[in-house]
C-alpha cells in the first residue's frame, strides 16, 4: 500500500516538475525543477529495487550535470525569451512529425507478435544489485570497463588539449621559481660613501 502511494507521489511530482522545466520563464528555475525531477526519478528507481541506478542518477545527474547546467545558465547571459521567439511557427510541422511517428509506433505495436520474455531468474532477486554489479564489473565485463576508462581518459585529454591556454601575461605564483631564487640574484651589498649616495645605474 505504502509502495503504491509512494509510486504515485513520486510520479506525480516527477511529471509536474518535468512540466515546469519546459514552461518556467526563468532558466534558473528550469534547472532547479530539473534537479527535482531527477530526485523523483531516483525515488522511482529505488521503488523498483534498482538502488544503484538511483544513486548514480543522483550523483551523476544532480551532482554533476545539473550543477553544470546551472553554471552555464547563470554565467552565460543567454536571453531565453529571444530564443523562444518565432518557435511557435514550427508547431504545425512539429505536430505533423510527432503525429506521424506516433502513428507509426502504434501500427508497429499492433502488428508486433509478442516476443517470449523469459522470467527473471531467482538469483537476481536474492542479490542486491550494487553487489551484483560489483561482482561482474571486474570479471565478465572487465574489458568494456577498462576500455571505458580509456575513453574517459581521452575525453579528459581532449578537453585539456583543446581548451587549456598558457598565458604568460597572467601573474601567478611559481613556487619552483621562488625556491630556485638565490640571494645573489636579487640582493647586493654596496658600500655607501659619505655624501655620495648610491648610484642606481
Amino acid at each position: 500500500m505504502i509502495g503504491v502511494i509512494a509510486f504515485y507521489l513520486f510520479s506525480f511530482v516527477l511529471l509536474l516538475s518535468a512540466f515546469f522545466v519546459i514552461t518556467s520563464r526563468n532558466p534558473v528555475y528550469s534547472v532547479l525543477f530539473l534537479i527535482l525531477a531527477f530526485f523523483n526519478a531516483a525515488g522511482l528507481f529505488v521503488l523498483l529495487g534498482a538502488e544503484f541506478i538511483a544513486m548514480i542518477l543522483v550523483i551523476v545527474y544532480v551532482g554533476a550535470v545539473a550543477v553544470l547546467f546551472l553554471f552555464v545558465v547563470m554565467m552565460l547571459d543567454v536571453n531565453f525569451s529571444d530564443l523562444r521567439k518565432g518557435a511557435m511557427q514550427y508547431v504545425p510541422f512539429g505536430l505533423l512529425m510527432g503525429g506521424g511517428l506516433l502513428a507509426e509506433l502504434v501500427l508497429l505495436y499492433r502488428a508486433w507478435p509478442v516476443p517470449h520474455v523469459p522470467e527473471p531468474a531467482d538469483v537476481a532477486m536474492a542479490v542486491d544489485n550494487t553487489r551484483a554489479l560489483g561482482a561482474v564489473l571486474y570479471t565478465d565485463y572487465v574489458f568494456p570497463f577498462q576500455v571505458s576508462g580509456l575513453i574517459l581518459l581521452v575525453a579528459m585529454i581532449g578537453a585539456i588539449v583543446l581548451t587549456l591556454r598558457v598565458r604568460s601575461s597572467v601573474l601567478r605564483q611559481k613556487v619552483g621559481d621562488q625556491v630556485a631564487r638565490k640571494s645573489g640574484d636579487v640582493m647586493k651589498i654596496e658600500k655607501v660613501l659619505k655624501g655620495a649616495g648610491v648610484d642606481h645605474a
Binding site: 576500455v147 581521452v154 581532449g158
Partner: peptide, 29 residues
C-alpha cells in the same frame, strides 16, 4: 590506434561499441 585494434577483434556488441568510441573520440579531438 588501441581502439581500432580492439575493433577488429570485437566479439560482443558492447566491446564493439566501446572500442569504436575510443577510436572515434580520439579522432574528433
Amino acid at each position: 590506434g588501441v581502439g581500432m585494434l580492439f575493433m577488429v577483434s570485437a566479439n560482443n556488441f558492447l566491446a564493439l561499441y566501446v572500442s569504436l568510441e575510443l577510436s572515434s573520440l580520439s579522432l574528433y579531438v
